[in-house]
């Protein structure tokens, strides 16, 4: 029954796998650095959904998964700040954020 999807572990696991796969696809398919950063955020949120699902349905201590997810959010915020400042610095020097134009170190 479609209306009781919210009380099944598999729903959340499949949504987490879907977000992770979308992130992998976007990382390979996007050319701009900001697009890659967006896909990376999707990968992290897929991992968080998995953590929260196991926390709700399987874990004996239901605070562990929530704390893990809060720390994933903190790491993701730090990662986004660093990545965006790198992107701004790259744009200042090269006037592009296309990953295929940044070939100075390519042999």
């Amino acid at each position: 029954m479609m209306l009781f999807l919210s009380s099944q572990l598999n729903t959340y696991l499949i949504i987490g796998a879907f977000l992770f796969a979308c992130g992998i696809y976007g990382l390979l398919q996007h050319r701009s650095l900001i697009g890659m950063l967006i896909s990376g955020e999707l990968v992290l949120s897929g991992a968080s959904v998995n953590m929260m699902a196991f926390n709700r349905f399987l874990a004996p201590d239901p605070t562990v998964g929530q704390i893990f997810t809060l720390f994933i959010m903190g790491i993701a915020a730090a990662e986004a700040a660093i990545a965006l400042s790198i992107i701004i610095a790259v744009y200042r020097n090269y006037k592009t954020i296309d990953a295929e134009d940044l070939q100075d170190l390519q042999g």
Partner: peptide
Amino acid sequence: GKSSGLGSLFGVIAGGLVFIGLA
């Protein structure tokens, strides 16, 4: 945004495999 055909193709294959495997 989009890369040329090869990147998209690899992306679809890799993403699909990851999704099917994990699910």
